[in-house]
Write a protein that binds this DNA or RNA. Structure first.
Lengths: 189, 189
DNA sequence: ATCCTCATGTAAGCTGTTACATGATTCC
DNA sequence: GGAATCATGTAACAGCTTACATGAGGAT
């Protein structure tokens, strides 16, 4: 039996995208990631994706070929290998889950605020709520948009979870504004 | 007027801890961060904290002195400077908030799962729920524990927010288990 | 005596970003 | 003809972690 493959989670995310069976370019992967993965897993930069693809190929978990369909304009297409498929299954069923990373600069500000700062934060929270509602809407839209193919069952579940995540975040921030008001913030003298 | 100070959010987090007025060592900061900041902002490693403190001092935002209270055993204590206080206020009220970083390896697994993998994920989700409940409990405990001093009003609000965050996450994962069941996962044949 | 915690760091390396370069193609 | 998009990458650097080194003091 092959040894357990060690990779950063982001590399697994890229490899995971390839498990859906299509040949994809780095460019494709970035665009797709921005519309799916990004809802629950910070989307890596374009250049990192290219780097991860090179690493995956180097380790034999992915293979690539150059597509020349339209004469000029070439693109490198990646596909998962047998070894990659197996390593991915071992990762996903490995029984250990890496810790969730949350960095919430807005809550950091609330934490460190004084009364004056809290006052200026309230409208920022409001703006952020608008953004999050839009993200929730988008996640829901993509969840509905996913084909009714069994292969898309679990991506759809993850997107539904994301929609809930952002709606919960909105509700929590509405609570926060109320809670700040209790502390005398936002009640103009 | 001084120019806007540019720093990574983690540096502001460390500086923010110093705004509470006490002189603190890198060691103190790490321990405190683990019990407060860590609920909503990924706690940096010990060595990073030392590095950030050096940077803050180098930029004139913090100052340090060596404490020799108990003869031997020396520790370097940091305090925020006037310039640091001002830069921090500008950062907190600057009108722009850095994006939230979320990396959720568990949801990544759900997203990329097939039926077999989903089956093995369910007990993992269950274990994770237990962990999160404990974190919610801890956040609530720390919120109640915060002194009833006006200086601790906003840290308390942030901790109350955190308690809600983890309780919401628990509820969402309970929903997730139900949702996976709908997809035929966890219903033994 | 030994082990654990307190306390401060350094070195090496990995993860990840931004900015840039390049050239083809499509759209207006 | 010019602008935007497609596509692939490199170089430099910033952020952050792990592992290690060191030594004192307190606990058993």
């Amino acid at each position: 039996m092959a040894e357990k493959v060690e990779l950063p989670v982001t590399a697994w995310a890229v490899l995971g995208q390839l498990t859906f069976g299509e040949e994809l370019s780095g460019y494709d992967l970035k665009r797709w990631a921005d519309q799916s993965l990004a809802f629950f897993y910070w989307a890596p930069s374009q250049s990192q994706i290219y780097g991860e693809l090179r690493r995956l190929e180097h380790r034999g978990l992915a293979s690539s070929r150059i597509d020349q369909t339209y004469d000029a304009r070439s693109r490198r297409l990646y596909a998962i290998t047998e070894a990659g498929q197996q390593a991915f299954e071992e990762w996903i069923q490995g029984g250990e889950v890496e810790p969730v990373v949350l960095k919430h600069p807005l809550m950091l500000r609330v934490w460190a605020a004084d009364a004056a700062a809290a006052e200026t934060l309230v409208p920022l929270i409001g703006r952020y709520i608008t953004e999050l509602s839009e993200r929730a809407r988008l996640a829901g839209e993509h969840a509905l948009g996913a084909e009714r193919n069994p292969a898309w069952r679990f991506p759809r579940v993850a997107l539904e979870w994301s929609e809930r995540y952002y709606r919960d975040e909105v509700a929590r921030l509405e609570w926060l504004i109320e809670r700040l008001r209790e502390e005398g913030v936002g009640t103009a003298e």
